[in-house]
Amino acid sequence: MDALYGKTLDELKVIAADAGLPAFAAKQIAVWLYHSEVDSIDAMTNISKTGREKLAKQYTIGLTPNSGVQESTDGTKKYLFSYGIRRTIEAAYIPDEGRSTLCVSSQVGCKMGCLFCMTGKQGFQAHLTSNEILNQIRSLPEKSILTNVVYMGMGEPFDNLENVLKSSEILTASWGYGWSPKRITVSTIGIIPAMEEFLNKSQCHLAVSLHTPFEEERRQLMPVNHVYPLHEVIQTIKKHDWTHQRRVSFEYIMFKGVNDDARHINELSRILHGLKCRVNLIRFHPIPDSPLTSSSENTIQEFKEKLNAKGILTTIRASRGQDIDAACGLLSTKELLRKES
C-alpha cells in the first residue's frame, strides 16, 4: 500500500478526488499529516467515515521507526532506517549549543563515486521517496527540538531532485510543517541542471562540495567534474541573486598534501571573488582503503586564517561523532555487510 505521509498538497488533491472527497479535504489531510502528525487515517476525524474507509483501502500513513541507533560521547546520534532489503540508510542527529541539526539521506547508496566517500563505495541501490526522506525527521525521537535539517547524508540530493523538492516543499509550506527555508540546507557536488532548477523552485540554502579549486585535481577526486566542471558550477551560482536571506556555502574537506597549500588558497580566493559565501573546512575522517589522509590541525587553522585574510569567510566544521563511524555511509555500509554475511 502507498503512504500518505510524504505527499504534497497537489498529490493529496488527486488522492482526495479519487476517494470522492470534496476539494478542501486535501488540505485537511495535509493538516492531519503534518500539523497534528496523526498515526492513523482513522484519526482524521473531520474527514467523513466513508472517505476515511476509502482512503484506508489504498493507503497507510506510512511511518517507519528507526532500526538502530549509535550514540557518541559528544551527543551525536546515528539512526539507521531500513526501507527494505539492501535499503538501509542513516540519519545523523547533531545537537549543538542552541541548535540541533539532522543530516538526512536522499538515496540508498550513490552513483557519483567520489574518491573520499564511503557511501560512494556502496554503489547505488535506490532513490529515497519523499516519504522516506521525511520519515527520517518524523520518526526522530528528538524531532520536537530539531532546529535545522541538512540534506548531506547518503546520496547526491540533485540526482533525486524530484523527491528532494517534494520533501522540502512539505517542510516549508504553510499546509506542511511551515518551517522557514533558512532552516534547511541542501548539499550537492554540482549537478548543474538540477542545481538551477532547485535555485529557481526552492528558497532553501545551498551547500556545494568543492574540495579543490583546480579542475584537474577535482576530476581525480570527483568524477562528476568531467561532466559539470567547477568553473561552470561557480558561474551558475554567481548568476543567482544571493543578496537576500538565502546562503551559499562551500564544503572543503582538507586532504594532506592534496588540496591544502598556498596555491589552493590563492585559487580559491580568485574563483570565489565577488560571491557572498562561506567556506566550511572539514577534517577528513579516514575510510577503509583510502589513499587520502586528513591535513594536520595546524595546516587547517592556517588555511582558514589565510582565506579569511583574503576576504573569504571561512570556518572549520567541528568534528562530531568520531567514535560512532562519523564518515557518512560507514555505519550503513557495515549494516549492509552484516546483513549480507
Binding site: C110, K111, M112, G113, L115, G120, K121, G123, F124, R219, Q220, P223, V224, H226, D289, P291, L292
Partner: peptide, 26 residues
C-alpha cells in the same frame, strides 16, 4: 557503471597505483 568504476579504482589503488593516475567517467 558506478559499481565497476569504484571497485576497479579501489583495486588499482590497493595495488599501488596513485589515485592521481586514474580518471573515471561514471
Amino acid at each position: 557503471s558506478a559499481e565497476m568504476v569504484v571497485d576497479s579504482r579501489d583495486i588499482l589503488i590497493n595495488k599501488g597505483v596513485s589515485f592521481t593516475q586514474i580518471i573515471s567517467e561514471i
